[in-house]
């Protein structure tokens, strides 16, 4: 079972600690990089790729970019060889270190997935074929388990999502009935007492992997322990 760790890219003073921790840890096969006021996730992904063999995912949210910026972001990621992307609507600015920032959400995650998958506007892939760019591998996030959440998951599946990240074991069971694509269980690092036990439960429930979400810009060995 795949083990992923999701982090927010660090602020400048914390880059070295963060990068070293990711490179040195043997507990995770993959890292998901989300930008939330820290350094560029694409840039960090490129540098990490030079120092370790871990699979790099970008997490791109609709919170702070309109469709023009998202298009640039995706195209740049493709150029950088980062074609594994997790898309989400994103934590509201009110719950970030920039609470007064304007929430954008011009597209929602479903709109973004549709645009990427229909290549409209061209999200890099066609234009980058001479560079042997790989097809996008897009993951989506389903938080809850209500009828509305499952309805959205169904729409994600029909829009061509390549993988699903869910917030609970119960949701995992539900989503499994909708798709045969990989499903990862996302768990908050701060709320996880016994990671190996959670890992076992996820495996038993049929998850393709587990994603440990670190809800801060700071990553150190302490968190991983």
């Amino acid at each position: 079972m795949k083990k992923l760790i999701e982090i927010r890219t660090p602020q400048l003073p914390d880059i070295e600690t963060c990068m070293t921790t990711i490179v040195e840890t043997k507990d995770f096969d993959s890292v998901i990089l989300e930008e939330a006021g820290g350094v560029s996730a694409i840039e960090m992904g490129v540098v990490l790729g030079q120092y370790c063999t871990k699979e790099i995912f970008l997490k791109i949210t609709c919170r702070d970019r309109n469709r023009i910026a998202l298009h640039s972001e995706m195209t740049t990621a493709a150029v950088a060889g980062l074609f594994k992307v997790v898309i989400a609507d994103g934590t509201h600015p009110a719950h970030t270190q920039f609470p007064a920032a304007k929430p954008v959400y011009e597209l929602d995650a479903l709109n973004l997935l549709r645009m990427i998958k229909s290549n409209s506007p061209p999200f890099g892939v066609a234009d980058l074929s001479p560079l042997n760019s790989q097809p996008w591998n897009i993951g989506v996030c389903i938080g809850g388990l209500t009828h509305a959440d499952i309805g959205r998951a169904r729409k994600f599946a029909s829009a061509g999502a390549d993988m699903f990240f869910v917030g609970s074991l119960a949701a995992l069971t539900e989503i499994k009935q909708l798709t045969d694509k990989p499903i990862f269980l996302s768990v908050a690092a701060e709320q996880t007492q016994d990671f190996s036990e959670t890992l076992r439960e996820a495996e038993e429930a049929g998850a393709s992997g587990i994603n440990l979400v670190v809800g801060s810009n700071k990553l150190s060995n302490g968190i991983l322990r």
């Binding site: 609507d89 709109n111 938080g143 809850g144």
Partner: peptide, 8 residues
């Protein structure tokens, strides 16, 4: 389009 990704 449906509940956001962060709703639990």
């Amino acid at each position: 389009n449906g509940p956001c990704s962060e709703k639990l």
